[in-house]
Design a protein around this nucleic acid. Sequence first.
DNA 1: CTCGATCGTTCCGTTTACGGAACGAACCAT
DNA 2: ATGGTTCGTTCCGTAAACGGAACGATCGAG
Lengths: 180, 180
Amino acid sequence: MDGHDTEIGSRLRRLREARGISLSALARSAGIGKATLSGLELGTRNPTLETLYAVAGALGVPLTTLVLEPGAPPAEAVHVPGAAVTATLLEVFEEPTATFELLRMRVRPGVVQHSPAHAPGVTEHVTVYAGVLRAGPADAPQLAAAGEHMSWPADVPHVYCAVGPDEALATLLIRSPRQS
Amino acid sequence: MDGHDTEIGSRLRRLREARGISLSALARSAGIGKATLSGLELGTRNPTLETLYAVAGALGVPLTTLVLEPGAPPAEAVHVPGAAVTATLLEVFEEPTATFELLRMRVRPGVVQHSPAHAPGVTEHVTVYAGVLRAGPADAPQLAAAGEHMSWPADVPHVYCAVGPDEALATLLIRSPRQS
DNA sequence: CTCGATCGTTCCGTTTACGGAACGAACCAT
DNA sequence: ATGGTTCGTTCCGTAAACGGAACGATCGAG
């Protein structure tokens, strides 16, 4: 159980220190005890959902920012193979802790594109801007129409499938934590 | 607190019943008590992060599927003063050296939206997916139609302007190096 | 109808996450 | 040096989340 907690703890501490606010101040503005927040950052507690919402709210970030599981993985080259998907690499951002790749993706309809699991901690963030796209973990894909957004951990096999007669267009942002 | 819990409860129950497995069976495969799972689905408990991981793992879904608020609170819209642009914050990535903010942006036509200079080192990356958008430094804006991409340093005043009769839609990725 | 099995809920003792208070360390001004 | 402030951690009593067991309800088989 501690694997996840320490993950959250270190991320939370980075988020807090990035804003330059003290543990005491964040605890106060979140309406929780300093002891709770300290234990959370140190990974010695197993926080309640209510606590997580309070902290995320005080930081002004979506709860998923705290909860996403990154891990420390090998950043393998990401390429989208197969005939149903073509992708164009727009930008690459190399950060000390992670690599971001921004792609524009085109998914032809009627075919399910399978993608193998990436390294642990890799997350994919898709914004659909034309058509309807079903994508995500192979066993639990999500559905999004134009203008909608979805994310998932990419360390399990995942799929892309355009729903309906037209091809789907989307931007794909891949975040790959760097091995530490 | 109950607002979120009942959210999760009903979603969890739908996920479970969609798989046709009983509460008892899911509790067993997740390694938690039936009472815990029942209370979670009924929204009468405030689950621990450990419990959430166990349930999400047993269902084979990412934790964000349980925790994300998909339909109801669809991210707060950030209204940039000037009324020509509205933006919705989709994701925030906090890295030690930089912060990434991913937004979906809607630009109404016929009005030029001015944005003041950001901190040095900030860059903006726009992918247009509907309409035609002229954007970039105020003295040298770039032009992009649907499907095209452009970037610029945002440490000078810059503008957004939808060209043509229709509003422009785009994703905006802002990279802000951390001040030190 | 009766039995057995399984459903989801409730009861209850144990475990533990919670916030308030106390703590030592670091810092600044006097 | 010294008093005052704020930092993050630890201590501790209370509130509540936990799992096991018991419960009534429901269903299918004999």
